Amino acid sequence: MADVLRSLRLGGRGDPARACALALGAEGVALSLLVGNGRMAEPIWCHPGVSARFEELQFTLGEGPGPDAVRTGSPVMEPDLDRVRPDRWPALLPPARDMGVHGVCCFPLGIGAIRVGVLTVLCDGDRTMTVQQCTDATALAAALTGALLNGNGNSGPVLGMFLDRPTGLHRAAVHQATGMISVQLGVTMEEALLRLRAHAYSSGRPLGEVADDVVARRLRFDDDTNGPYSPGDGKG
């Protein structure tokens, strides 16, 4: 982990998510940053594929250890999802287990009331997180927080490396779609996002795909009584 932190501080290239996952001995690692008025955590980089799918699941549902860590400002440690109460994350737990996610530990990025993101670590099949792993993950979260809050000096290359990587995971369309739904229904941005997420969940589609349909005007939410409306295709 010392080598990883040194490389990040010096702006080293390569795959930071893979390097962090290897250093932590984790099944996966993901970094998400808070963006937009809704302060949603959008994934910036992930490794491996299961990490990306799990972040997409949390992003679509708006529930899980990541959102909880952001809301409370404290780490959320659940190395064994089989021991989590079903009513804690009812929509997230079944598909997470189907993905092969055994356990999740999330570390918020921020200082005091300031929140900038969350580091998500997927635990291995042993469903444990050792003291050393927890210490390393905490140190990594602190280093990422410093880089993101002080985007100048030595942290400049680190911040640039994180934000310039073309991961394809950014969801700018979600923010645009939320604004459009807010206007269509005459509701707050928060409620509009809830409506968007509810439709994505009920239709079994990723949030980003549904948002793309709203932005492209293939899906409208102004028929609030009977649900979203797909022009030319009947009810959505």
Rank of each mutant, 00 (worst) to 15 (best):
F221W: 02
T145V: 11
G153F: 10
R13F: 10
L24K: 08
D82L: 13
R18N: 11
L92F: 09
V187T: 10
A19Y: 01
G153M: 12
A23D: 04
V50N: 04
G36L: 03
D164M: 13
W89F: 13
F221G: 03
C134Y: 07
T128F: 10
G62C: 06
A113E: 07
P166T: 14
H170I: 03
G146H: 01
H47L: 09
D222P: 09
H175A: 14
I44A: 05
S74Q: 13
A173S: 10
A69E: 03
L193C: 11
P79H: 12
R127W: 03
M189Y: 10
L109H: 01
L144W: 02
G28K: 02
S74E: 09
D3H: 07
L196N: 11
L22Q: 05
E42M: 06
T130I: 07
G160K: 08
R197C: 08
M40V: 13
V215E: 13
A147Y: 00
E55N: 12
V183Y: 14
A21T: 14
A91H: 01
L193F: 08
A147H: 06
R127V: 02
T128L: 15
R171I: 00
V70I: 15
T120A: 10
V50D: 05
Q184V: 08
T167L: 11
R218W: 08
D87L: 13
L163I: 14
A200K: 04
R197Q: 14
S203F: 05
G236I: 03
